[in-house]
């Protein structure tokens, strides 16, 4: 683990994904991360996808991830996107 890099729990990865979407308020305590898609949270086009990737990268610092490694298309579920963070950060 690098200096100042806190462990990325599934909870933290999920928080970063949800908070980086345009409409994060739609994801509530009872929402199912395996069913709610990024489209449901306002990522309805590649324009929002690109900004979503940038927002996630900003929240992840000092962890880093390659843009193409982050699952960010509208049909991606919150869980898939969060797992892609855990899988690919460096």
């Amino acid at each position: 683990m690098g200096p100042g890099r806190e462990p990325l729990t599934p909870q933290r990865c999920q928080e970063i994904v949800v908070e980086s979407t345009p409409d994060s308020g739609r994801f509530t305590a009872g929402s199912d991360p395996a069913k709610v898609t990024l489209f449901d949270l306002g990522v309805v086009s590649s324009t929002e996808s690109v900004i979503f990737v940038r927002a996630v990268k900003r929240s992840l610092a000092p962890w880093q991830i390659n843009d193409g490694d982050l699952a960010s298309s509208p049909d991606t579920t919150v869980q898939q996107s969060a797992d892609s963070i855990a899988q690919n950060v460096f």
Partner: peptide, 20 residues
């Protein structure tokens, strides 16, 4: 699910399997 990750930055390995 078939997706298993390891917790980044953990002091020792922690395995995480997605469920649905």
């Amino acid at each position: 699910s078939s997706t298993m990750t390891l917790r980044p930055g953990a002091p020792q390995p922690i395995l995480q399997i997605s469920t649905s």
